[in-house]
Design a protein around this nucleic acid. Structure first.
Lengths: 233, 233
DNA sequence: AAATTGAACTTGTATATACATGTTGCCACA
DNA sequence: TGTGGCAACATGTATATACAAGTTCAATTT
């Protein structure tokens, strides 16, 4: 059973992302939300606190809860979206490889627990394009622990996180990442269609989930020539 | 007056950062903290919630609150610290210019409010070095609103945020940032001692503070050849 | 007309309490 | 000796309540 504060959070989140509430709008007051959902204020505040955490709303004492920013979601969480010019609709995801079950690479970018090593991982290679221009090359590694039918799922133009969220009730809670600027070389040149030596943003991330000891790892190559990465924190 | 949950938060935060509690340690349980500080559990939980938010602790139901990670703080908040090899001690900050009061640059990286434009800004240029190697070149713009004696302060080897925090009770609450990988050119080559064309990580950030409508802006150039940027979220 | 007061709203802080659920370790029983 | 189960303790969720403090606006006063 989903906790009540989560239900309210999910609903408000959905409404904000779908534009029911738009940037600058004021959400119903805490007391109104209490009445609407038949819960008490601490519970409502827990939901709003999560929304604040997501950077979706601001709160001002005496005023109310104000919708902050509709993130341009491209499924890379905290560092997500690009310039405001890029909407959800023109972002396309193309699967290059996977999802396939395999062993973890040797010398993995993050340290793995024995359980993870033993279970192997699900491997996924994707390229994401905006206006037919490839901007992201993205390799994901997911511990193959209790994810029935995962490797046979379709990921084209779907968010990996959305699938984890809806099909397995796994939510990304946070994570850590390492950032570097590197020079384009090897297959990156072809995949992102850049010149050799061009600056490329490189990310390594380890994402925590709501399931204990279950992490999602990924490496990301971004061509930031025309579009910056955007993130809130 | 500082709220009680803030007091407890500050204390625990200080203890974690100072190493009283180390990575993997378990904090006193919520009920113990209640007794220790003479407050109730919801209040303690509010403090712990803030610590979780900072990425300083994890919580596990049934187990306790576990200290997560002592961030290698280099004063750039969420994207902070570098590899674990870099400790606080060997990071040196050198002021290149400022703090000086001046007008905002034309065509600023972020949109400014009329009040901000009218007030002008405090300008600050810094280079940060690890082992005598320059890794960061950092330009900060701070709205010149009610900050007495600010421009005459000394910043050598001090955190800008620490000064805002301690001298003006201004706390960084969050913010937004744009990330790019660029090629080294112009004065960046000299300042960061890199070759022309080398990949450089470029950041533009707008930081929200606890003071309404008061923001800190900065642009950052990072040489990530030897050290990645590290961040939690 | 302008300024002040105050009522009615908002979110912020805090207490007291209850039960649910996950974790650990010890004790009694087989 | 081993193991199952229970007690004790941890955090998670939720209610009910109270007062503090910031905001807004309209009524009242000057």
């Amino acid at each position: 059973m989903l906790p009540q504060y989560r239900r309210v959070y999910e609903l408000l989140r959905k409404h904000i992302l779908e534009g029911v509430y738009q940037e600058g709008d004021i959400l119903p007051s805490e007391n109104e939300l209490c009445r609407l959902h038949g819960i008490t204020r601490p519970t409502v505040r827990q939901a709003l606190s999560k929304l604040m955490n997501d950077g979706l709303i601001h709160k001002h004492q005496g005023k109310g809860s104000i919708v902050h920013r509709i993130p341009q979601d491209i499924g890379i969480l905290s560092v997500s979206g690009t310039t405001s010019a890029i909407g959800k609709k023109i972002l396309k995801t193309h699967i290059l490889s996977g999802p396939t079950i395999m062993q973890w690479p040797e010398k993995f970018i993050f340290e793995l627990s024995p359980v993870e090593v033993e279970s192997g991982c699900i491997y996924l290679e994707r390229v994401r394009m905006v206006n037919e221009i490839p901007l992201f090359y993205d390799i994901s590694y997911i511990a193959n622990i209790n994810l029935p039918r995962f490797s046979s799922r379709t990921f084209e133009n779907k968010s990996l996180f959305e699938i984890l969220r809806k099909s397995y009730s796994i939510e990304i809670k946070g994570g850590e990442q390492r950032l570097k600027a590197i020079s384009a070389q090897g297959n990156i040149i072809d995949l992102l269609k850049v010149k050799k030596g061009n600056p490329i943003l490189y990310l390594e991330r380890k994402l925590e989930t709501s399931r204990a000891n279950f992490f999602v790892y990924s490496t990301l190559f971004c061509n930031t020539e025309t579009h910056s990465l955007y993130g809130a924190f």
